[in-house]
Simulated assay, not measured.
Amino acid sequence: MATSSHNVDNVVRTLRESLKTLGFEVYPFKIGWYNAVVSQAHQLKYSADTLAVVVLSTPSMFENSFLPFLQRCSWKDIRDPVDQCVAHAISTCVSEHFSDQSVDISYDYEMQSNRKPKFLAQTAAHVAGAARYYQHTDIENPPWGNKKMFGVCIHPRLGGWFAIRAVLVWKDVEVGKELQQVPPPDCVSSQEARIKLLEKFNYNWQDWTYRDIVPTEESYSTRQREYFITPPAQRGALLRQWGFIPETETKTVNNI
């Protein structure tokens, strides 16, 4: 197993240079960091020092990657355009730059045979220092008592205007002390703000106001908001209205 810092630096730098212009961010972490904070059922089956990377999509992904993908894709086998756009971008990067290395790719929408997710996306983003995962355990004397409240990641520059898309594992690259774990920025630091965040996310997530819990450098464009606000079953019709699906296309456009 390779252990030099050059290998780690090269992997991260190459990924960032390849994916940044497409609207993605890349953050490395050790498998052991992730496995230390999840249950045994969710642990990733690699050695603790194995190099992994979490990939986030930023708001610019929509215009820089998704819309161009729609213009050139064939609609015969399209199920979810966003998922397939992300998979195309990441798999192309890996095949072009790491064809001689063993890389496992897991996407946020993939499930194991037992119906558990292949990885816990928000935990991966947190341990990699990409975005802080705020949960009910971060609240002292929560006003909602023992009621279950789902947690949410907040990015220090993008707030909630991002998505966690994939985890990549370099099976033959082991990380040494050159990669130190850095906690994600605590950008929602007050108890009042944390309560507001979790309540907005759990009770009113559809209005998206939780995404603006902190000042942001970038958010979704008008067209991107229209796409994601549209129910999945109607997005095909929206894409046809935008001119991305030919009128002659016979494939049903529902549920894509």
Rank of each mutant, 00 (worst) to 15 (best):
M1D: 12
A2M: 13
T3M: 05
D9M: 07
R13E: 03
R16I: 12
E17D: 12
E17L: 11
E17G: 07
S18L: 00
E25H: 01
V26D: 05
K30P: 03
I31V: 10
W33I: 01
A36N: 06
V37C: 07
V37G: 00
H42E: 08
K45E: 12
S47N: 11
A52M: 03
V55R: 01
L56T: 10
P59I: 11
S60G: 06
S60R: 15
F66T: 02
L70Q: 12
W75N: 03
W75C: 00
D77Y: 12
P81C: 11
V82M: 14
V82H: 14
D83V: 04
C85P: 00
C85R: 03
V86C: 03
A87D: 10
A87T: 07
C93D: 00
S95R: 14
E96D: 12
F98W: 08
S102T: 15
S102Q: 14
M111D: 10
M111E: 09
S113C: 04
S113A: 14
S113E: 15
R115A: 04
K116N: 14
P117Y: 13
Q122V: 08
Q122T: 09
H126K: 04
A128I: 12
A130R: 06
A131E: 08
A131V: 10
R132V: 01
Y133T: 11
Y134I: 11
N141Y: 06
P143R: 10
G145P: 06
V152E: 08
C153E: 00
I154R: 03
L158M: 06
W161H: 07
R165L: 10
V167C: 02
V169S: 01
V173N: 01
K177M: 10
L179E: 07
Q180I: 15
V182I: 15
P185Q: 14
C187V: 15
V188Q: 07
V188W: 06
R194F: 06
I195M: 10
K196S: 11
L197K: 09
L198M: 05
F201P: 07
W205C: 13
W208Y: 11
W208L: 13
Y210A: 10
P215H: 12
T216M: 04
S221N: 09
R223M: 14
R223T: 11
R225D: 11
P231F: 02
P232Q: 12
L238Q: 09
L239P: 13
G243M: 09
I245N: 02
E247S: 13
T250E: 12
K251L: 12
